[in-house]
């Protein structure tokens, strides 16, 4: 298994996918941070907000990085189907070890994305509010949000990996991950908020302590997320075992 992990680790850094997604995730989160900072500044000027809540919003904006962690997970699997190198991976590592190695490396890359998200969220809390001439108010809640950001990235990358194994097509899996995160789950959340709180990406909202929606407690959400990952993982592994590699 060590050899498989070493091979997959080298693959993980090959190509431009990781840097492109990292830059996109950072840029979008930074823009959102500034958006929350701007809105918060206006609210504070009008006396209708508090600095701790604005700091939380600026930090929470970095939750967007989990979308890119999911996309990375999906791409790291499906690009091998595109090139045909998946057959060699199966020949060299075997299906079980390949599945385990991709999952482990995907989760590790998710953890790195989480570290980047946490570091930049702290920097943006300071930097964005400094731009508006304010200090930031870091509270215990802000720390929990930052921890949630890290956890969401770690959990989202395997989700993308599993979707990649199930769909086996790069564009289709990228569209699926984006549609679930940005369209389907939020749409269902508007239609049936309570039921939607059990969806994977909405349950992640509980982990990064989103506000203003009907959400599960973080503990329940983690159980729900574990259930989704277990179900997707079982489906992905079964399909990898039975489907032909043509």
């Amino acid at each position: 298994m060590t050899d498989a992990l070493r091979g997959e680790w080298l693959k993980a850094w090959s190509g431009k996918a990781w840097i492109v997604l990292l830059v996109c995730g950072t840029y979008m989160s930074l823009m959102t941070s500034f958006g929350y900072g701007s809105e918060g500044d206006k609210a504070l000027d009008q006396g209708s907000g508090d600095l701790a809540a604005v700091t939380d919003d600026v930090v929470r904006a970095w939750m967007m990085t989990f979308l890119f962690a999911s996309l990375y997970g999906a791409i790291v699997v499906t690009r091998e189907y595109g090139s045909g190198s998946i057959s060699r991976s199966v020949l060299v590592m075997g299906r079980a070890r390949l599945f385990g190695a991709k999952l482990a490396v995907g989760a590790l890359m998710g953890a790195l994305s989480g570290v980047v998200a946490v570091v930049f969220s702290v920097l943006s809390a300071w930097g964005v509010l400094t731009v508006y001439g304010r200090d930031f108010a870091w509270t215990k809640e802000t720390t929990l949000i930052a921890v949630g950001l890290f956890a969401c990235n770690v959990l989202a990358a395997p989700w993308g990996v599993f979707i990649g194994w199930i769909i086996r097509h790069q564009i289709a899996s990228v569209v699926t991950v984006m549609a679930l995160t940005l369209l389907v789950d939020p749409g269902l959340q508007r239609l049936a908020p309570k039921a939607a709180s059990y969806l994977f990406t909405i349950a992640l909202s509980s982990v990064y302590r989103d506000v203003g929606h009907t959400l599960l407690s973080p503990q329940t959400a983690l159980l729900v997320i574990a259930g989704w990952l277990a179900a997707a993982g079982c489906a992905a592994y079964r399909l990898l075992r039975v489907r032909d590699l043509t």
Partner: peptide
């Protein structure tokens, strides 16, 4: 095999290193 391509985004040396590491 004709349909087994190299790892996307790699150089020849890096592609071979990936498989060498995977094979120990």
């Amino acid at each position: 095999m004709d349909t087994i391509g190299p790892t996307p985004g790699t150089t020849g040396r890096r592609d071979l290193r990936i498989w060498a590491r995977s094979l120990g």
